[in-house]
Design a protein around this nucleic acid. Structure first.
Lengths: 193, 193
DNA sequence: TCCAAGGTAGACAAGTTAGTCTACTGAGAG
DNA sequence: CTCTCAGTAGACTAACTTGTCTACCTTGGA
């Protein structure tokens, strides 16, 4: 692995587990065994390293989620699998995406609250990308006009809520609870058409 | 206002708007006009000041929410009012709880990821307190056995999800969307009894 | 064999961090 | 009026922050 890649991966792991402001570049360097000049050769500043770490996580997380959803039939099974995947993530059973410590993008947004900042915007883009992915699967359900949008919002709200509850409250079963609620809601909705 | 209180309020405001690790005690002192020795007379360390700021926010936010919910009839109207209150918060129309910058407890948990830490635990306790408050209102609905718990989870997940979407994605209308979804779900549920 | 150049090394600088120090002030008790 | 002491003041320390510096190494091509 080339040094740039190693820097980004090491930085991500540290930022994710300890927080971005709490981790200095010296720690990233000590952990990766790379010299400071090399870091500043590849990145003009720590902020650029942070940005690279966010993009790295975006690629990784997205790839993980896609791989989890593609081996089940499209539509409702994929929706349920989404919550199974979240459940495995919360319980740190997915080595591809590291030991669960909340959503890196929510955490980063917490540290870089200014919505105009590059970092905050990158986090928003990640969330929009995941939402688009989910919407694609809900399209498969061929729901009546307007309902697709509503169900997408429901699923995304449940997902985000589950992540928050799992991390802040330590309720690692939040994804399963959200799945149970979603199943009931979809049943009731179908019964009332 | 005595200096201890002023320190805590100033610290909270800065921590909330800029992040905890990003704000040094020197900034809190400069902003409040208080000397360093006075801070360390009242608090043994910055960590204790952070803890005090969290407890301050807990009291304040809880009091605000209670006052918003008590002037409507208990039960369903209170539930809907919860989301109206969130909506006003997201749009920074509630001066009691400062300009919206996400949930301070989620943000603090992001910076202090270790669930064993005092700060993370205080955040979890806050969330548990708010959930209890919400559950109390759902009890008023006199729902069938077991349903109270499920609806409580739904409401809390929607609330947390809305906060995340409002902050990270900047979707300030997330509370209204969550309210719309909740209304539909409750209708469907009632129709299927 | 030699040169060139991108990549590497870690000492260094300037500023900021949390926390400590001695000295002073002012209000209340006797 | 005087003593006492909690509360106040801000200069100071040591460690850490990000970012820069000169010097060196290694590799590919002629």
């Amino acid at each position: 692995m080339d040094k740039q890649e190693l820097l980004v991966r090491t930085a991500f792991k540290l930022f994710y587990t300890r927080g971005i402001h709490a981790v200095g570049v010296n720690l990233v360097l000590a952990e990766s065994g790379i010299a400071k000049k090399t870091l500043y050769h590849h990145f003009p500043s720590k902020a650029h390293l942070v940005e690279a770490a966010i993009r790295y996580r975006d690629r990784n997380y997205r790839a993980w989620l896609i791989s989890r959803l593609e081996h089940v039939p499209a539509g409702k099974p994929a929706l349920l699998e989404l919550f199974n995947a979240l459940n495995d993530w919360f319980h740190s059973r997915e080595s591809d995406i590291d030991h669960f410590n909340g959503c890196f993008f929510i955490n980063a947004s917490a540290e870089f609250g200014d919505r105009g900042s590059v970092i905050h915007r990158a986090c928003a883009e990640h969330k929009a990308g995941i939402t688009a992915l989910i919407r694609k699967h809900i399209d498969e359900l061929s729901l009546p006009e307007g309902t697709t949008e509503e169900i997408t919002k429901l699923v995304v709200l449940l997902k985000e809520g589950a992540i928050s509850m799992a991390h802040v409250q330590g309720n690692l079963d939040a994804a399963l609870e959200a799945k149970g609620i979603l199943v009931r809601v979809l049943q009731d909705r179908m019964a009332n058409r």
